[in-house]
């Protein structure tokens, strides 16, 4: 019987899939603005071993590993420029060129390490609509607030209803003392609140302002979908990026915990999650 460490209980436990014979694995993939380093190789190889072993045990494994091609901001989360947009600016490339270039190189490096490709490789930019709906759901439940056009997680409010910090083993007081001072902090109620959706720098058009506003986020999914689709049709990735900076997959340890808590709360339960740390 496979025994595997459960970060939530902090014990090795007998692995029992929710659906007999089937396993779903979600692993946090790279943010594609630079070459993979040794710190990326380790989780990739570790989850490759898990995938290979579960497969050899006869499980049907659906292995999802994303490509973060938008929305990973400098300095962890709340302030600063999108990492890919910044790289593109420095290299005088289209952001999509940066994304494709480093995605190709990542695949090549993983193949060299004999890391098997995942069953599904979603791109963050391909799920903007779902992310808008997701942020909206959190807002509707009262666990987020809008400040200066950006949406932040209301950590204190959330912690009243759910055991925030259970995965990382840190309580809110620990998190407060550990939180770095960053630009844009004044928009937040507390330093430990984190951005769910960030107002882009230099937003001008009223339509885009509306997009970042709570009213917009309350709009029906269908409307959000139309808006996103229109953005994609009419502009390059770069232009759509500056109006829809997305912050949802941030691969630091604290954010892993945050996103997992949020995922459990919203009813989707990833039971194996992995994260590359950058």
């Amino acid at each position: 019987m496979l025994e595997i460490y459960n970060s939530l209980t902090r014990f090795k436990e007998t692995f029992k899939p929710l659906h007999p014979g089937h396993v779903g694995m979600y692993v946090c993939g790279p943010t594609v603005y630079g070459d993979a380093h040794l710190g990326h190789a380790r989780p990739a190889i570790t989850f490759d071993i898990l995938f290979r072993y579960l497969t050899s045990l006869g499980y049907k494994v659906r292995y999802v590993r994303n490509i973060t091609d938008v929305g990973h901001l400098e300095h962890d989360a709340d302030a600063g420029e999108d990492k890919i947009a910044k790289k593109a600016r420095l290299e005088q490339l289209e952001p999509m060129e940066v994304v494709q270039f480093f995605t190709n190189r990542y695949h090549h490096d993983m193949e060299a390490l004999n890391v098997l490709p995942p069953s599904i490789e979603p791109h963050a930019s391909g799920h903007i609509i779902e992310q808008i709906a997701f942020v909206q759901a959190i807002l509707d439940k009262g666990y987020a607030y809008v400040s200066n056009g950006s949406v932040y997680m209301d950590v204190e409010r959330y912690a009243k209803d759910y055991p925030y910090g259970k995965l990382s083993g840190r309580n809110l007081n620990d998190i407060v003392t550990d939180t770095r001072e960053l630009d844009g902090q004044e928009e937040k109620k507390h330093s430990y609140d984190f951005a769910l959706w960030k107002k882009a720098a230099g937003l001008q058009s009223s339509a885009i302002r509306r997009m970042a506003s709570r009213r917009y986020l309350r709009a029906k999914d269908s409307r959000a979908g139309t808006w996103s689709a229109r953005l994609w049709e009419r502009s390059t990735w770069a232009r759509s990026l500056t109006s829809t900076e997305v912050v949802w997959i941030l691969c630091s340890r604290t954010t892993r915990q945050k996103s997992l808590r949020v995922a459990q709360h919203s009813g989707t339960k990833p039971y194996i999650t992995g994260c590359t740390t950058t």
């Binding site: 630079g34 070459d35 993979a36 380093h37 040794l38 710190g39 990326h40 190789a41 190189r105 390490l113």
Partner: peptide, 14 residues
């Protein structure tokens, strides 16, 4: 020290 982009002490696979 932890190897990572933010510490600028990483060695790429290449």
């Amino acid at each position: 020290k932890k190897m990572g982009k933010s510490y600028n002490n990483f060695i790429t696979l290449r």
